[in-house]
Design a protein around this nucleic acid. Structure first.
Length: 151
DNA sequence: GCCAACGTTGGC
DNA sequence: GCCAACGTTGGC
C-alpha cells in the first residue's frame, strides 16, 4: 500500500467537485514523471488531495485509488484541451487513474504548515521549483499529516 | 546527443 | 500578472 499526493487547481477540479462526482478519473496529466507515478498506483492506495494555484494552497482532502492506470482518452479527442496527436489509441502515451472521495481535511492544511513539518523537509512538494503534479508520499509524511488532523 | 528557445507550472 | 524553475522540442 502506497501513499500519493495529487495536485489540482480547485477552479478546475476541487475536493468539493470530487465529493460531488466520486469516483472521478484523473485526466489531463501530461508529464512523464507524473504519469509514471500514476502507473505505479494500486487500488486502495491513499491519496492526499492538494489545491494548487489558488488562494488557499494546501491539502484539502483525502481520496483513494479505485481504478489503476488506463489510457487517458482526452488525449485522443481533438476538441479536448488535453489533446495530444502523438498519443494514439493503439499506443497511448498518457494514462489516468480513478480516485474516490474519502473526506475533507478538518481544515485546509496550508503549504506553509507542510513546509514546517520535518517530515516534509525532503519531498517533491517542498523542493525548490517543484512542479510535479503527482508524487509519492512516504509513510512518515502520511503519518505527519494524520497527526495534524488529530490536533 | 547537445543546447537554445520555448512553453508550462505554480507560488508569490 | 510576474517570473523562476523546470520540462520539452527541434535544429544541428
Amino acid at each position: 500500500m502506497a501513499y500519493w499526493l495529487m495536485k489540482s487547481e480547485p477552479d478546475a477540479f476541487s475536493i468539493d467537485d470530487l465529493q460531488a462526482n466520486s469516483p472521478a478519473h484523473w485526466d489531463g496529466v501530461r508529464n512523464y514523471q507524473a504519469r509514471n507515478f500514476m502507473q505505479q498506483m494500486k487500488i486502495g492506495d491513499d491519496v492526499l488531495f492538494y489545491h494548487s494555484s489558488c488562494k488557499k494552497i494546501g491539502l484539502a482532502g483525502f481520496a483513494k485509488v479505485v481504478k489503476e492506470a488506463y489510457p487517458d482518452h482526452t488525449a485522443f479527442d481533438p476538441n479536448s484541451d488535453y489533446f495530444d496527436a502523438k498519443s494514439q489509441p493503439e499506443q497511448p502515451r498518457w494514462f489516468m487513474v480513478d480516485v474516490a472521495y474519502s473526506r475533507h481535511t478538518k481544515q485546509l492544511i496550508s503549504l506553509d504548515i507542510l513546509k514546517s513539518l520535518p517530515a516534509f523537509e525532503q519531498s517533491y512538494l517542498t523542493k525548490k521549483g517543484a512542479r510535479l503534479s503527482v508524487m509519492p508520499i512516504t509513510e512518515v509524511q502520511w503519518q505527519a499529516v494524520l497527526e495534524l488532523e488529530r490536533s
